[in-house]
Design a protein around this nucleic acid. Structure first.
Lengths: 233, 233
DNA sequence: GGCATCGCTTGACTAATGTCATGTTCCCGG
DNA sequence: CCGGGAACATGACATTAGTCAAGCGATGCC
């Protein structure tokens, strides 16, 4: 069953952290705890939703397959993030598939448990809306970026999101492999490679899965600039 | 105040249609009814949300301005559709701006009304999640299309969504002007024009805001085909 | 009626991205 | 330590979309 360490992570998740302890304990005690290997499927598109999922460790991607077999990555989640809220509560089919992209641990809260608790306390509904809103917001941002930025600019944003600080220099680790980063940013691995090359001009060095940013404000400017402007190479 | 005809439309909206009559009446009686001219702003990004909005007539667009001034259209709503649910219930800033793209009528349900009703009946929460899920789903589809289809294919999908039937031929009216369609599909008006030209090869004729589709399954095939495949021009 | 405006189309050109092919590096297992 | 496969990088080329500029046509205003 669940270790205390896992429960601690679950308690800090956006979904649960603002709920009263009592409800949290109820949910934790009814949850299903599972491990997945890299590449393992968590659920597939069109399958009917029966639980809300909370990632405790590792990385999970949500994606959609187009009729031609092209894969579009919708989001990537890690420790403390949850997904499937809006779907699980309505017993409708998942609009996406979910797959473990690294070995990972996921907690599943069966929908009936959540629904009965929600009927008892409407505050739960607000909490679920909070998570759902976060997802909406993230999708809107992605949409904006895809429509208004070049590939290299999206990569720049991605790197900036990995930084803690907002000035000076910074070193970060790429959280998952470049193929997935490319998918997440809506481009091919080749294009990602080239985008990284371009970013050299604005002080970004990539080595393996390690990135050095020499000037964060400069990179910010680049990411938010008009694509037409010229940035010395 | 509100005419009966407007109330009837509101009652059929996704947000309200599955609620008990009693609740619907409460919400309708507390709602604010407003008219907007073409181009008028309904709310702006970062403004704090105080109501859920239901479109009764006309068209409303939600969009985001990037720092450089580029506009990304996130969605376009019309009669019977609602927006702002997840935001209004949490008192957070809107992630997007809203503007009337034609003369239109919008009903605003103040968040406190909705919240107090939600506390009284958790079923309201489920109904709100239903609307929110619809938006999530639509954003996911848009993302998939942007990532996996060419401009012309997205236009094809757009036309197919306007058709009622799924076989034979069909004639439809373009619901709003081409500049907005282009924005909604993530392209420039010039590109939309050219996309329409290409679609001639798969039996689409555009005249003003009137579109003729001679072979719906053919257009479907085109929309879902691999961009690399060749379609005689 | 005439003129200005705006939405839309078209052409020529450029920038960005995908595709295909090739080569390198790294990691893992024998 | 070696070999094979996967991830990644790079070059050459095709396709797609954005940019800039010109022109058409309907609408509306004076």
């Amino acid at each position: 069953m669940a270790h205390e360490a896992q429960k601690a992570i679950a308690r800090q998740s956006l979904l649960l952290k603002s709920l009263p302890d009592q409800h949290v304990e109820t949910l934790l005690s009814h949850a299903i705890w599972r491990q997945y290997d890299r590449g393992e499927t968590i659920f597939v598109q069109e399958e009917s939703a029966q639980a809300v999922h909370v990632v405790l460790a590792g990385w999970v991607k949500l994606f959609r397959m187009s009729p031609t077999g092209a894969e579009a990555v919708v989001s990537v989640f890690t420790r403390g993030e949850s997904f499937g809220e809006a779907v699980a509560l309505r017993n409708v089919p998942y609009p996406v598939s979910a797959e473990a992209v690294s070995a990972c641990e996921v907690m599943h809260i069966p929908s009936p448990v959540l629904i009965s608790l929600m009927k008892a306390d409407p505050e739960i509904g607000i909490s679920i809306l909070a998570s759902t809103f976060t997802h909406l917001h993230s999708l809107v941002s992605q949409l904006e970026q895809l429509k208004a930025q070049t590939g290299a600019q999206r990569v720049a944003e991605f790197l900036l999101n990995l930084c803690d600080c907002d000035e000076g220099a910074c070193e970060v680790e790429l959280p998952y492999d470049k193929m997935l980063i490319a998918g997440r940013l809506g481009m091919k691995p080749e294009s990602l490679s080239r985008a990284f090359s371009r970013l050299k001009a604005v002080g970004v060095k990539i080595n393996r899965n390690h990135a050095e940013i020499s000037d964060i404000p400069l990179l910010r400017d680049y990411a938010d600039s008009d694509p037409a402007e010229n940035w010395a190479r």
